[in-house]
Design a binder for these strands. Structure first.
Length: 550
RNA sequence: GCCCCCGUAGCUCAGGGGAUAGAGCGCUACCCUCCGGAGGUAGAAGCGCAGGUUCGAAUCCUGCCGGGGGCACCA
């Protein structure tokens, strides 16, 4: 019996009690069970009695009594105890849960996937860096988390498009071009330019690509440096992301928004919704109607459009392309955008259900006990590529996906690069490798798990805990998708790996010595394969490999 | 000044109103006759402060204190 099945049974029991007139309240829409922290509190626990007591005008324990009486009659429930103020502690009949191992083995890669978001088209935008420099540590976090959110949403049934918005318009592009040109001529980089070490290398590359560039007249030369640098830098970002196993479906450029007429269409959409007005010669969007702290300029007094105009057009364009939900994962330096973007959606006639703006707090790193300052302009930067070179794709992706994205993060480079058990990714991957090894040994010994097994054989505490942990997985995935929090998957995997290691320590899977393979060995092999599948599926949701050997 | 994020164990961090607040690392004491000891067992150690809501608050609300980030007819 899975948590979902138990919840359903509990819901039916409560409804029956209501229908029988025992509980003078409407039946709750949903009731849930959770795994209690204390083992003596049973396999599952529920607080429905506490929640229903007040509306029913009854003592909690009285409510608990009458629910418990009905719940005890449910097939697969062994015991229901009432504890504390009115908790129901449920113990399942031996074997009623372990059959799940067969379900998991049959489902394979599909176990854990759900249908909560089936039919929903999601646009997942993340990173969206300027094409004026290498991707740095912050981008690495957005890459790891953005991709993991996309994977988790897909597991919940959503159709997800991963999108990268290229900020290729505006004065920063000219500063970028000017910096490259200065470097190529051996002149000092302009004060408002880009000072990273990569500029000199990139300038050389541009000159190698366009040998006559230094002879062009200055305005043309500047434009050429800008465009060539842009192309090279973008290609470099794409190469690095590819190596990070982060693949985008759509690379969307700000210039293309203008060229395609999307900006005009966006403005038209906002105009027809009636939230635009003119003042001081400029055209404004009344975002304050929807929670923004000030109205925003769409068309400047000089006729130029603002960056914000492109943002609004981009949103309208995404919706026009058929996305039900537009998710933005932005850096903390963009937190001011949250209310603004939501106001844009509202001004376009949409609701909060259509837009979600996630703010990723910045990553701070320390090395040798000292903070490493990150600054594209200062030149001392740790790039995504540096980070991956030091720790490997798996460790980087996993480490960045262990934490809620909105919590500031301090990572010790020395620890992450150590590649020991201090890094939880190894703990989880090791569990997978250990099971894989065990399954290989089983094949070598000629022990086959067969067509089926008797779940009642898996009755030790460690076996029960492992089965119950496996049963949590679909719920964890569904919650991670609902909240856009893939770190829940990582934390779950760490718990599962621990539960497995404890099982392994206590329970022998394969026959010892000359022992003949028996039904218990075969039953445990089913449990092992099921555990391996869940570890593998979970790691996949984080974009991390599940190695058979380490 | 206004806005956002964060204050949980020595350190880095989990914890969707529930029972005795968890994990890893570090520290202390243990566990290998055969499946991977990259493992397991036990122990010491904590919710920034003050109010409020609630049967019940680390969690929700208010104020304060501390750390970080941000404010534009820039991009």
């Amino acid at each position: 019996m899975t948590p979902a099945e138990l919840s359903a049974a509990l819901g039916a029991v409560v409804s029956a009690a209501v229908d029988a007139g025992e509980l003078p309240v409407p039946a709750p829409a949903t009731v849930s069970v959770e795994r209690p922290k204390q083992r003596e509190h049973g396999d599952y626990a529920t607080n429905v009695a506490l929640q229903l007591a007040k509306p029913a005008g009854m003592p909690p324990r009285a409510v608990a009594e009458l629910i418990a009486a009905r719940l005890r009659e449910v097939e697969g429930v062994d015991r229901v105890d009432i504890a504390g103020p009115g908790f129901l502690n449920i113990t399942l009949a031996q074997g009623s849960a372990a059959g799940l191992a067969a379900v998991i083995v049959a489902a394979g890669a599909a176990y854990g996937r759900g249908t909560g978001l089936t039919g929903t088209a999601v646009n997942m935008e993340f990173i969206s860096a300027n094409p004026t420099g290498p991707l740095h540590l912050g981008h690495t976090r957005w890459a790891a988390v953005g991709d993991a959110i996309a994977r988790v949403l897909e597991a919940a049934g959503a159709k997800v498009t991963r999108e990268f918005y290229i900020n290729d318009r505006g004065v920063q592009m000219d500063r970028f071009g000017a910096s490259l040109m200065a470097a190529a001529h051996g002149r000092p980089i302009p004060a408002d330019g880009y000072h990273g070490d990569y500029i000199a290398d990139l300038a050389k590359e541009v000159v190698a690509t366009v040998p006559h560039i230094l002879e062009l007249p200055e305005p043309e030369q500047l434009a050429e440096f800008r465009e060539q640098g842009y192309a090279l830098q973008l290609a470099d970002q794409q190469r690095v992301l590819d190596g990070f196993r982060t693949h985008f479906d759509v690379w969307s450029s700000e210039r293309a928004l203008y060229d395609s007429g999307a900006v005009e269409r966006g403005l038209a959409r906002l105009r027809e919704q009636g939230h635009m007005y003119e003042q001081d010669g400029a055209v404004w969007l009344r975002t304050t109607d929807f929670g923004d702290d000030k109205d925003r300029v769409l068309v400047k007094a000089d006729g130029e459009l603002t960056y914000f105009t492109a943002d609004t057009a981009y949103y309208v364009d995404k919706r026009a392309r058929g996305f039900d939900v537009c998710i933005y994962l932005l850096g903390a330096d963009h937190h001011g955008y949250v209310n603004r973007l939501r106001a844009v959606a509202a001004c376009a006639g949409d609701s909060d259900a259509n837009i979600s703006v996630l703010i990723g707090q910045l990553v701070k790193i320390v090395k040798g006990g000292e903070e490493v300052r990150l600054s594209k302009r200062a030149g001392t930067i740790v790039t995504l590529e540096d980070f991956v070179d030091m720790a490997g794709v798996d460790a980087v992706r996993y480490t960045l996906n262990r934490y809620p994205v909105d919590s500031p993060l301090t990572l010790d480079i020395d620890v992450i690069t150590r590649q020991t058990s201090e890094n939880p990714v190894f703990y989880v991957q090791y569990a997978h490798a250990r099971i894989s090894s065990l399954l290989r040994n089983a094949v070598e010994m000629g022990v086959d798990r067969g067509e089926s097994f008797d779940p009642a054989l898996l009755g030790t505490e460690q076996e029960n805990n492992l089965v119950l942990a496996l049963a949590q997985f679909p719920g964890v995935v569904a919650t991670a998708a609902e909240l856009y929090e893939p770190h829940r998957v990582a934390r779950y995997l760490e718990e599962l790996a621990g539960t497995y290691h404890r099982f392994y320590d206590a329970c022998r899977v394969l026959p010892m010595g000359d022992e003949e393979p028996g039904d218990l060995h075969r039953a445990r092999l089913w449990l092992m394969e099921a555990t391996r599948i869940v570890l593998s599926n979970g790691l996949d949701l984080l974009g991390v490999s599940a190695p058979d050997r380490m």
